[in-house]
Design a protein around this nucleic acid. Structure first.
Lengths: 268, 268
DNA sequence: CGTGGACCCTCCCCCGCGGGGAGAGTCCAG
DNA sequence: CTGGACTCTCCCCGCGGGGGAGGGTCCACG
């Protein structure tokens, strides 16, 4: 039959491996035009070559096969454009992340360990307006900025009595999933949507201030952690962060200040 | 013991999951400072925190764990720098590839199918200086440029009687691995290093010329493949490419011309 | 000093995307 | 008709990581 290709011919025409073509078939990404019911042989049409090439391009861009399947299955031009745009946005984000990782690696390799100043403080209980949720670690940043927007919107009119902060469950770091709280201290916390009054409990804290963007914050965490271990202290409860200076205050990321508070009590 | 952390403490201090720390241990990437022989408990030293953070940075940059292991195990600064530079080069290449894929995707989605001109030609046998090897598809580009440099060096003094070319086994496209030949036609082919005389066999060819950089070359292959299928022809032997205009001739990639020759014979 | 709850252990299965290879069936030109 | 090229399915492997079961360990509090 003219215009019909065996899987090998199709592989030659598209530069896609036979193995991969078979997988694309079973994933529903690229259905052969015909399958011989007795032999199971796959036969492709020449019309499918352009589709296969589009698939190849998207795979080169690391788009997940499920999304590619959605795109090639969609005839609606707008929906298709939306899917592609979504993926391109993800690529952008990934590029940014790579750039950030490179930069912070450079900083890390600089033989310039800044002095570590750990402060101990007995923090009293604090009444705040808060949003609480169970979050995965990868989602924390997105979740945080959304929640903080909602918080700011909920407290307009009230007097904000201090910098914003957050409490992060230990399991967030050990298991990539845990409770997280973001809060704003206000005189009389409202109850709106996800926003609810909350009392940050009193605690004995070991505190260190992280300077600069958060790409490096694990380094500061590490310093604090090693201080705590050396001082024979033990962790008691969720880690606290207080955002003394943040993106809302200045666009100069190197001026940001984040207080990290580790609830401790003396052991042994 | 001060300065000693359980795996959970270490996870909190480094922001690396317990699961991942255990994997890094069994991969030999990050050995715990001590292991309780009776309980199997892993204990880490605070000194290991910076190492762990370096590992995390490199993983963020998608460096394979084996390479990271090599880096953290090496005390030789130069060797370490070489390893890092190597990975940065790989990241660069990856960025280029992404850019190319995006560009060619855009071209592909433009509804602008250029006219396809397929020529038939009975190519006579041709004596050439050639390098032959079994190559994986991912390595073809690197292999090609190395081999071509070696060829050019081997034929200085001889008269080059035509454009460079290559022969590519079908299994290169169906299985990602196959024989590849690159050649330069010269009057009297030398034998030096990998370079040896070779006779490109006579063949009946279906020929199409690909215009522009090779990012899109699979599209031209697809057009030729679908022509061959519609014409009830069948493939007989390795695909041939002839580099009429290439990077050596002009840096304007859109001016490049590559002849693709598909050995065919009439079927049925 | 006992005990409960938090913590840690190993082991196995899962994901996506792809490759290697065995063993058997199919296709088709000479 | 036959042989060699082609194709089929099935299972295992790689990477880097996650989920969860089942069971042992640690230690502060009562």
């Amino acid at each position: 039959m003219p215009g019909t290709l065996t899987i090998g011919d199709f592989a030659r025409a598209t530069h896609i491996t036979i193995k991969t073509l078979r997988r694309y078939h079973e994933l529903g990404l690229l259905q052969p035009a015909a399958i011989d019911p007795s032999s199971g042989y796959r036969y492709y049409s020449t019309d499918q070559i352009p589709t296969a090439q589009v698939i190849r391009r998207f795979r080169d861009l690391d788009m997940p096969t499920r999304e590619i399947a959605a795109i090639v299955a969609t005839t609606d031009v707008d929906a298709r454009a939306r899917l592609i745009a979504h993926h391109l946005a993800r690529l952008e984000a990934q590029l940014d992340q790579t750039r950030a990782a490179v930069a912070s690696l450079r900083r890390l390799l600089e033989p310039d360990p800044p002095a570590l100043v750990v402060e101990h403080r007995a923090a009293p209980a604090l009444l705040v307006a808060a949003i609480t949720a169970s979050v995965a670690r990868d989602d924390v940043l997105d979740w945080y900025s959304e929640a903080m927007d909602e918080l700011r919107a909920a407290v307009v009119g009230s007097t904000v009595t201090g910098p914003a902060g957050g409490l992060y469950d230990n399991t967030l770091f050990t298991d990539d999933l845990g409770q997280a709280v973001v809060y704003l201290p206000v005189a009389s916390p409202p109850t709106t949507g996800r926003v609810a009054p909350f009392t940050v409990p009193a605690a004995e804290l070991a505190i260190v201030v992280h300077r600069g963007p958060h790409d490096d914050i694990d380094v500061t965490y590490g310093q604090l952690g090693s201080y705590v271990a050396r001082s024979e202290l033990t962790v008691a409860g969720p880690v606290r962060e207080i955002y003394l200076v943040g993106p809302r205050d200045t666009s100069d990321a190197s001026a940001w200040r984040t207080e990290i508070g580790w609830p401790v009590f003396r052991t042994g």
